[in-house]
Structure formats: C-alpha cells, structure tokens
Amino acid sequence: MDALPANATRFLADAEALAAQIPDGAQIALPPDYSLPAMAVVRALVRRRAKRLRLLGVPVLGMCADLLIGAGCVAEVETSAVSLGEAGLAPRFTEAAEKGELALREATCPMIHSGLQAAEKGVPFMPLRGVLGSDLVAQRSDWKVIDNPMENRGQTTISQKSWSDPDFSDPIILAPAISPDVALFHARWADRAGNVWLGRRRELATIAHAAKAAFVSYESMREGDMLEDEILAPGVLGSVYVSALAPAPRGAWPLGVADEYPIDDAHLMAYAKAAKTREGFRRYLDEWVLTPEKNFSPA
C-alpha cells in the first residue's frame, strides 16, 4: 500500500471547515450511530452539496448515512448493514437500494474490521474464518480464497476456483486491506497537541490508523497533553493520525456522547417517520440541516 502521512494536525474553525476538506468522490469511513458519529460535519457536507461520496460503514451505518444518501451526496455504500436501530429501517437507504440508485458493496462486520486491521499493519490482506458459503463471497470479487498455507506448506495459490473446490484442504478467506480516503468521526475531547480522546470506541482509532486522512470534530478542548496522562492515554488517538480538528459542541446530536448527552430517541423516531417519503425528508432537511442556525439541539 501507499505510504500514509505522519500528520501535523491542523486546527480548523468549525464543522463547515472540516466538511470543506472532504472532496467529492472521496471514500469516507463512518462509525455506527452508537460510536461517536460526526453529525455536525455530516450536516455541513449536505449543506456544501457534497457529491459522489463513497461510504464505508465500520462495520454498520445509521442516520449519518441515511441523511447523506437522502440528500443525494452518495454514489456507493460498502457496509454490513444500514439501520436506525430501535427506530427501524433507514428509510432513505432502503428506498435508494430498492430502486437500484446506489452501488452496493455488501459485507459482513468482521471482513470490514479485518480489512482495516490489514491497512493498520501496512500488509495487503488479513485472513478470516467463516464467511465461506455466504452469497456475499460470490458478489465480492475482491475477497479471495486460498488454501491455508500453514496446513499445506508451499501449495498456496490465490484461486479462481470456487471455495468449495475439493482440491482445497482448508480454504480460508482473505479480506483485502482497506485504506479509506477519509476517516470522519467525533471525539469527546481534543488537546492542543492534536490528540483526541475516544474512550472505549477503539474502532475509531482503527479507522484513523487505516485511513489516508482523519477529520475529527470534538465536544471540548482539554488543557494539557492527554498522552502525558496515564489514565486518559489508553482512550487517546494520537495526533500523528489526525489530519485536522474542529470544535463542534453537541456535534454528535441527535446521537449521543457517553456521559455527555444521550441519544435523542424522540428526534430519531421523528426523523424515521419524516424520512419515509421524499417530501418528508426534504422538510426535515429544511428544518434541521439546511438552516445553519437551527443546526443543533434545542436542549
């Protein structure tokens, strides 16, 4: 894989400035709704009318993706699932998928995690057990099956044959390394050194390690260098991985930040209902996304 940069983190003014860094056509890795989504930046992407984005769900997607898809910002989605959780199906994704308006690269959670872990190590692939016999394998020509070389020394070939070929004695699937153009997520804290604190949401660290650039919005600035603090350090993503930062208080709303604010279930339910139709979705955008001053929770 190509060399990735050791970043000198830039400090930007706000979510709009972060969104301006993300070019049309970029592959953007996004976390699930429960894992610090950068909703304020997603809304700014809609306002700047981003085009042809390619979304990677790590490993699943929710409201972030549904907003971008409904607003016409997305050309392709690679993910294990898209759903609004308790609020049901993601309506804009569901309609776009049923009408064939999206290029869909279906996956299963650990294949995405493994592909990112390969990129973290700078190696071309990561093997994974299971998956063989799923119809996903036939759809994904980039997923390769080999005979386990540790069992059959010297006989490994990446095969054009089916995984069920009797010549295989122990077939195993390979997840190709995934190095997204952009990792985009929210953090509870940033510090002046450019570090961000993610706590237990370590999949965000994996995304940032694997991506060519990482753009992070944050709740608040914390004094001192968090990597110098033994208690905070295990939850930190070091600035070497962070391309740019910007403040976005309540930036995950209507989703939550642990110990800061909970998921706004009522808003999510209202969105799920409104977005069932194109007209309802348009009205939602007008009210909550396209007017900047109404861009965060009244709470």
């Binding site: 294990s80 993601a90 994704f93 299963t108 299971g130 799923s134």
Partner: peptide, 22 residues
C-alpha cells in the same frame, strides 16, 4: 437471509456470515 426478500431491502448481513460459524 438478512439482505433482501420479495423486492424489499433489509438492513444487511451484519456479522452473521462469521458468527454463525464461530
């Protein structure tokens, strides 16, 4: 099947293709 049925789209396979084996 967690993907599609009778023309309707469902959320997707999640981790099923791995967890069912492991």
């Amino acid at each position: 099947n967690l993907v599609r049925a009778e023309g309707r789209r469902f959320p997707g396979s999640f981790g099923s293709a791995f967890m069912y084996f492991a």
